[in-house]
């Protein structure tokens, strides 16, 4: 295993000790529990999360300042939530001095770029106190999810209880207990195109990153990365927010995380390279080389 998992201090399999959080959590309830702990301890005074939006399963960036508000955003909605759009606003109309933010690997890249190059993010760089990244193979536009659920799985969006990508399938769970699984070869064409140049699977630039891959059902794999993340995670463990198992002792374990990370990065690296010769003597832009 090499650079595909990014730098990290520790890696464990973990699950929230809060039954309430787990009831609607995607996996181990890591994001909600860690934010709830950080809120209650005053480590952050609000968190930018993906709350419910105007349509079923459409997320909307949302500044949660209470545990109750955090609870409303539990679970994953597999489409785009521009959480970073609130990063300055959170310090303005919400008056936050200590911000938490959750996001995909690309959003963590955006946050860190914005801390080093804050062209338009005045007085934000030192206010980001807890950035939680989530593993991400790719994301979907809202209309793609709608098409997958309504056209392929033949379910109504509002009657879906949970969606999940795992074990090589896109799963749609209905309120009445029905389960539809779509092979990922069906979902691939609906992916957000810009995800195909992304070279990060496990949110390498987050303070703490987490996702289901590598851990048993109901648990999450957690990478603790930065000094700051380590400090908060250690305190949260001491406070009893999580039960943990050494990642070496769970199945399928880090090997699978590594395998999927390498698959994503390898495939996308090829896409980036193919863009250089996309036309006839004409290239598509490569953001990793120059603006």
């Amino acid at each position: 295993m090499g650079t595909e998992l990014g730098k990290y201090k520790t890696c464990v399999s973990a699950r929230s000790t809060s039954k309430e959080i787990l009831k609607k959590a995607q996996d181990g309830g890591i994001v909600t529990s860690l934010f709830a702990y950080a809120l209650e301890e005053g480590i952050i005074d609000g968190a930018i999360v993906s709350g419910p939006g105007d349509e079923p399963w459409r997320p909307q960036p949302y500044v949660a300042t209470t545990v109750g508000e955090l609870m409303a955003s539990r679970g994953t909605r597999y489409n785009i939530s521009p959480n970073v759009s609130l990063i300055k606003e959170a310090t303005r109309s919400y008056g936050l001095d200590k911000i938490g933010i959750v996001g995909t690997p690309c959003q963590m890249q955006a946050v860190r770029k914005g801390q080093l190059y804050p062209f338009g993010w005045r007085d934000v760089d030192d206010k980001i106190k807890l950035a939680i990244g989530i593993f991400c193979m790719e994301n979907f536009p809202y209309q793609s999810v709608k098409q997958l659920v309504e056209d392929h799985a033949a379910m109504k969006m509002e009657s879906v209880k949970k969606m999940e990508i795992g074990k090589g399938k896109f799963w749609v769970f209905g309120e009445r207990g029905q389960v539809v699984q779509l092979p990922l070869k069906v979902t691939h064409k609906y992916e957000q195109p810009a995800c195909h140049v992304c070279l990060d699977y496990v949110a390498n630039l987050a303070d703490v990153s987490t996702g289901s891959v590598g851990s048993p059902d109901g648990w999450s794999t957690v990478f603790v990365r930065s000094k700051n993340g380590d400090d908060i995670w250690t305190k949260a463990i001491a406070a009893g927010c999580f039960e943990t198992k050494p990642i070496e002792q769970v199945k399928p374990g880090l090997e699978l995380v590594s395998k999927l990370a390498n698959e994503k990065i390898g495939k996308n690296q090829k896409t980036v390279e193919a863009r250089a010769t996309f036309g006839v003597g004409k290239a598509l832009r490569n953001p990793y080389i120059k603006p």
Partner: peptide, 28 residues
């Protein structure tokens, strides 16, 4: 240079940077 080039993943950075709040996000 971003959306037309197939590079926008909808993070929201641009909206946060705009000094005149000219940018919103519609469906990401």
């Amino acid at each position: 240079d971003v959306v037309n080039q197939g590079l926008c993943m909808g993070c929201g950075s641009c909206a946060a940077a705009c000094p005149v709040r000219a940018i919103t996000h519609e469906y990401g």
